[in-house]
Write a protein that binds this DNA or RNA. Structure first.
Lengths: 340, 340
DNA sequence: TTGAAAGCGTTACCAG
DNA sequence: CTGGTAACGCTTTCAA
């Protein structure tokens, strides 16, 4: 009659007290053993008993309890963007993440769709991350930064096209991409240059600086810049190509290789010779651009390796007092192929 | 001499006790007000005082303390893959995430590079998630599942090409993609069919089932299947194209559109007529495939909308007892264009 | 309507 | 070397 119908999968979660009881020691001893605390010496047989008890119960420490006690976490929070990041960023994030894990941080991505900047910052702050690395396209306001700092974040870092007041900045200056592309077109003798602006929302954070970079380069070279809104659809590209000759452009920087491939095909279909009548250059140097005829010229973007940046995050966490730092991550250079 | 050099950004993190003190009420009252507890009635002036005090201090509740007290979290953990997921998956994750947030879950992605299945499961379990949704390519063993369940996870769900023993499964049966592609080639009269297997690591989880699906379809149609290892590089594709005629294939399913574009270009450069001599079909129906000449045939993959799946996760969390459930998410159909 | 107190799981301090 | 104890921040009885 005293049979308890507890299924193993529904039983209470084992705690360090359970481990202590099973091993016949105190909770403190369990803690010492499991954390390899070196300030105190525990006999080997005891260690083994504790380890075995933990294994037998499937004990896993409770991170929340631990960090409550410790007064801080080792969580680095990466707010996730609403929009798929560029492939380049992906690799970079993975590197950053494993770099941080190597330094014993727990890296956690937290999405924030449908929250405004303040709400999002509060949601992050509830987790009490020791650092926040917010990619470009994530709303991060000075007030949001203040909330995070007050909640104990020792480093708030933006990672994107431009710095944000009051936070450290890992800058991927996308203007450089526009500058490179435009300079290359200028060198090819082009003076009336279109710059594709994707209409997809969320891309603006990247597109605007690329355009700005193009403008600056053009100003120095006596060229004209014409922004060209474009959706990532064949119809949109065809419409643009249809009115191409009225635009009178002899070169175009197409935001990136995807848009460049789309546009170049539409231009060719409309009988515009590339590069004869109009030169086309993309960015990001995708493999696929090399498969087209003419082969697509591009801007290769190189991102700093992420391990030093993980070290940087670590340094800012350990030594939080200083002025906001700025580090430039992105370098760009034109890769001329046949389309320019 | 008593001047404290505390900078505002370095002061202690405000707690509910600070809010209570400033508002001149007890901590309990603060909790009632801030959580809109309806079982107890608090006067409006008090409510306002509490809210103002919280705002003034920039108080943000401490999620760890809260869940420690509550005995459970509302965290849904998504282990992040080592490898960039397909674009389709990206959209899907974003949808799932906002669906879950709508149900008041906190969605957290946790990377696990360089950890084996057991270590990873323990790392996740430390956070005491109420549910874990593990994408394909993430190692999830029966033991790992047990660890998670014992640590309080009420739902462990895999999301990928095949179910895992003991967990619920959202199945994206990639075999269907291979089956579709191959059936389409059979309908076009092809009988000697190559199937590209990317050599990049991490892609295997997707590639193997696609190959399996192709084999099954071929078996029914009296066709031969030839696996074709390929790296995503021009040289690799050129090498494959160079020995193409010795392979004697009249059709090829190229894993996806990226590999298909790469291979098709190499075949054309080697003087192989597409589709005359060899038909080529990809998968994922990328826009770029439509820009090639011949236009690339593809398999369009459609994923179930994610909101119902968020509801499903919620249901499994609230009602954890049942048998492992399986839900099929992926449907595929061939989109014939000019390359087949 | 408000306040006091207990307790969640952990670890650090201090006696034994 | 080991064991008791207090404290981290929060919510929730129970009592006033």
């Amino acid at each position: 009659m005293s049979q308890l119908p507890e299924q193993p999968s529904e039983g209470p979660v084992p705690t360090s007290a359970d481990v202590a009881r099973l091993a016949g020691v105190s909770r403190a001893t369990v803690s010492y053993v499991l954390n390899n605390n070196s300030t105190v010496r525990i006999s080997d047989p005891t260690r083994r008993r504790v380890r075995e008890a933990a294994g037998e119960l499937g004990y896993v420490p409770h991170a929340a309890a631990r960090s409550l006690r410790a007064g801080h976490t080792r969580m680095v929070l990466l707010p996730a963007g609403n929009h798929p990041a560029a492939p380049l960023h992906h690799r970079f994030f993975h590197e950053l993440e494993s770099g941080l894990r190597r330094l014993d941080y727990t890296v956690v991505q937290h999405g924030s769709l449908g929250l405004d900047a303040e709400e999002a910052a509060r949601a992050w702050a509830e987790l009490r991350p020791v650092a926040v690395v917010a990619p470009g396209g994530i709303a991060l306001t000075p007030q949001g930064i203040a909330v995070l700092r007050r909640s104990g974040a020792r480093a708030v870092i933006t990672l994107g096209p431009q710095p944000v007041e009051g936070a450290h900045a890992l800058v991927m200056d996308e203007r450089e991409v526009g500058r490179c592309a435009t300079t290359h077109l200028l060198e090819r003798g082009r003076r009336r240059i279109g710059v594709v602006i994707p209409e997809e929302r969320g891309v603006g954070v990247f597109a605007e600086p690329r355009l700005a970079g193009a403008r600056r380069a053009a100003a120095g070279g006596g060229a004209r810049i014409e922004p060209l809104p474009l959706r990532y659809e064949e119809e949109s590209a065809a419409a643009l190509a249809a009115r191409w000759r009225t635009l009178g452009l002899d070169g175009v920087f197409a935001y990136n290789d995807d848009y460049a491939m789309l546009l170049m095909r539409a231009l060719q279909d409309a009988g515009i010779d590339v590069p004869g009548e109009t030169a086309v250059i993309g960015a990001e140097d995708l493999m696929l651009g090399r498969l087209l005829r003419p082969r697509l010229s591009s801007v290769r973007m190189e991102l700093a390796t992420a391990q030093p940046l993980a070290d940087l995050v670590d340094r800012l966490v350990r030594n939080p007092g200083g002025e906001p730092e700025r580090h430039d991550l992105l370098s760009a250079r034109a890769i001329p192929r046949e389309s320019t």
